[in-house]
Design a protein around this nucleic acid. Structure first.
Length: 543
RNA sequence: GCGCCCUUAGCUCAACUGGAUAGAGCAUCAGACUUCGGAUCUGAGGGUUGGGGGUUCGACUCCCUCAGGGCGCACCA
């Protein structure tokens, strides 16, 4: 439709002797009184035309030739908007399209199978996932779903490090707990992992080995067991949320295969690295960094940014055209170094999109809970899911933009779980399912011939208009990586349906009208269920 | 001190990326169909979009500045 109108407008401009270089853009007006689509072209191009916007709009509209079965009114309003009001027939055709495409409605080919990677979660296996991780996990997965829906070839990846200092401390924490269990006197350092799960892991080792590990080093069996149990636990939690990664990428492989060393060598070759005070520095300032950065410490150990650069280079080498990193706000400072490093190696950093989500603040009993894995001061994702369920968790994390600091009041979440916004959406779906069941029990065939021209009530028309927007919505949410707008849109669809439901009966004596309204209901159910699948929430037939 | 994010109704947040009269949910108050699910619907009150300046036909949105909050600013990850 936009394409069609753009063509007509261009023709009109040409007729005024003005064609060149002006491409009309459209948007959906906020208020329905302003039509179904609007263009600001007269305001944008008025100067070039040498008149004022309203007059110019008038001239354009006079020259405009448009199919009257699609658009029944064109008007000029406000400072010079040209508003198009579509015909009811147009919307009925769109409803027919929904009924035809079913669970494919809204799919589009924005991605052209572009090879895309979404890296998210990427928490090191030092403890269970917390509510804080939940936001990144659900968001990353939903971005992946959006991209899949718009025909990107998506790989979900989890990057982890099982070799760092924190992992050593983890191993040693388990070791001390184990020694404690076999009766030795220990002193447990304050900055070690305090969580109960450490004791559980130690218990498992004790069950298996009795006291045979008395002189085992921390980095041996202890670390190994901890990593495995914690990772299993993390994966289980993710699976509950409907999240499964395709690739788990171990930072260590970057060392084993020499990729890290390679980066240093190439930096040196390009004279982008130098030695100072026994450390190796990367000239990040050349690429817009605030200062040069250490990539290898004087101890010979690399800093985190070196493998990070190597890792992202591998992403691009692996053929990804689009790489999405989902990070928490605490990592804002790290990615400019990575991008600078890639630029230094002649890779195109614009292929990498870094999506940063702000923190989740947990409020419990009116107090802010400071989360720390090490101090075991956290609410785990599992506990949250137990409490409110998967759909509420997913929807809660998705309904707000990632730029906002999220307040999560645990008490409120529990109390309100029965009146959580997600139920509003699911209720609409279940309600439609129920209507269909009722209709069929009355001997009405859901596939019966339906004359959609019988749908002419305001509630019916505005509902159809809403449904029509779904593909555009999906496209723009995928393009901007903003699932929260889809959540809001689906809320509107559900609301539109509830209003319709209260204003009109679906199943009546009038067979034709019943068939038409059934068709509308099925259209709503289709859009809801397609949208739910992108958000990763259930579309219940009953509640 | 520097960088990034945030500040919108009593509370939690939107605003189609610069558009027309800034919208939802919760909370408060007042109401609704004896037939399809009341986890619903209708209505009311509530705003100088943190303050100030600028850019332009037009600003919650962009720029400058001030204030408040969050996160960073290592030879930690």
């Amino acid at each position: 439709m936009k394409q069609y109108l753009a063509g007509r407008l261009t023709a009109s401009l040409k007729a005024l002797g003005l064609g060149g270089g002006i491409t009309p853009t459209f948007e959906k007006p906020r208020s329905t009184a302003h039509g179904d689509l609007t263009t600001n072209i007269a305001m944008v191009a008025a100067k070039q035309a040498g008149t004022n916007p309203r007059q110019f709009a008038q001239q354009i509209v006079e020259k405009l030739q448009i199919d009257a079965t699609l658009v029944d009114r064109v008007e000029i309003a406000g400072p010079g908007f040209i508003n198009f009001h579509f015909t009811d027939k147009f919307f009925r055709e769109r409803l027919r399209e929904i009924l035809l495409k079913k669970n494919e409605f809204g799919r589009l080919d924005a991605g052209h199978r572009r090879k895309t990677q979404v890296e998210f979660v990427s928490a090191n296996p030092t403890g269970p996932l917390t509510v804080g991780h939940g936001r990144g996990a659900v968001f990353g997965d939903t971005v992946a779903r959006l991209l899949e829906w718009t025909n990107y070839d998506v790989t979900r990846e989890y990057y982890f490090n099982n070799a760092g200092r924190q992992m050593r401390i983890l191993g040693d924490s388990v070791r001390l707990r184990y020694l404690e269990l076999i009766g030795e006197k220990i002193e447990f350092p304050e900055d070690y992992y305090q969580g109960e799960y450490i004791k559980e892991i130690a218990q498992h080792l004790r069950d298996q080995f009795a006291d045979a590990l008395r002189s085992e080093p921390a980095e041996g069996k202890f670390k190994q067991q901890a990593e495995q149990e914690i990772f299993d636990d993390i994966k289980k939690t993710l699976r509950r949320l409907g999240i499964a990664h395709d690739v788990y990428y171990n930072e260590n492989t970057l060392y084993e295969t020499g990729k890290v060393k390679e980066v240093i060598e190439e930096f040196r070759k390009r004279e982008l690295a130098y030695d100072l005070d026994g450390a190796i520095w990367f000239k990040a300032t050349i690429f817009g960094g605030d200062k040069d950065k250490v990539i290898v410490k004087s101890t010979g150990e690399p800093t985190y940014r070196l493998p990070d650069i190597a890792y992202h280079r591998e992403k691009l080498r692996r053929g990804f055209d689009l790489v999405i990193d989902v990070l928490g706000a605490d990592h804002v400072a790290t990615y400019p170094d990575v991008l600078a490093g890639l630029k230094a190696l002649d890779y195109d950093p614009s292929k990498i999109k870094v999506l940063i989500h702000q923190f989740v603040t947990i409020v419990q009993n009116g107090e802010v809970v400071k989360m720390s894995t090490r101090k075991a001061n956290y609410v785990t994702l599992d506990e949250l899911i137990d409490e409110v369920g998967v759909d509420v968790v997913r929807y809660f994390f998705l309904m707000r933009s990632i730029g906002s600091h999220l307040n999560f009041d645990l008490g409120l979440a529990k109390e309100q779980s029965e009146q959580n916004p997600v139920y509003y959406l699911q209720y609409a779906h279940a309600r439609i399912a129920s209507i269909i069941r009722h209709a069929e029990s009355q001997g009405i065939d859901r596939n019966a011939f339906h004359d959609l021209s019988l749908l002419s009530q305001p509630e019916e028309l505005s509902l159809m208009k809403l449904l029509t927007q779904f593909p555009d919505m999906v496209e723009s949410c995928a393009a901007t990586f903003e699932p929260h707008r889809l959540a809001e849109y689906l809320h509107d669809v559900a609301g539109g349906f509830h209003k319709f439901y209260h204003a009109h009966r679906v199943v009546t004596e009038d067979r034709n009208l019943t068939a038409a309204r059934m068709a509308l209901c099925i259209g709503v159910k289709t859009v809801l269920s397609n949208g739910f699948s992108i958000l990763g929430i259930q579309a219940p037939e009953k509640m």
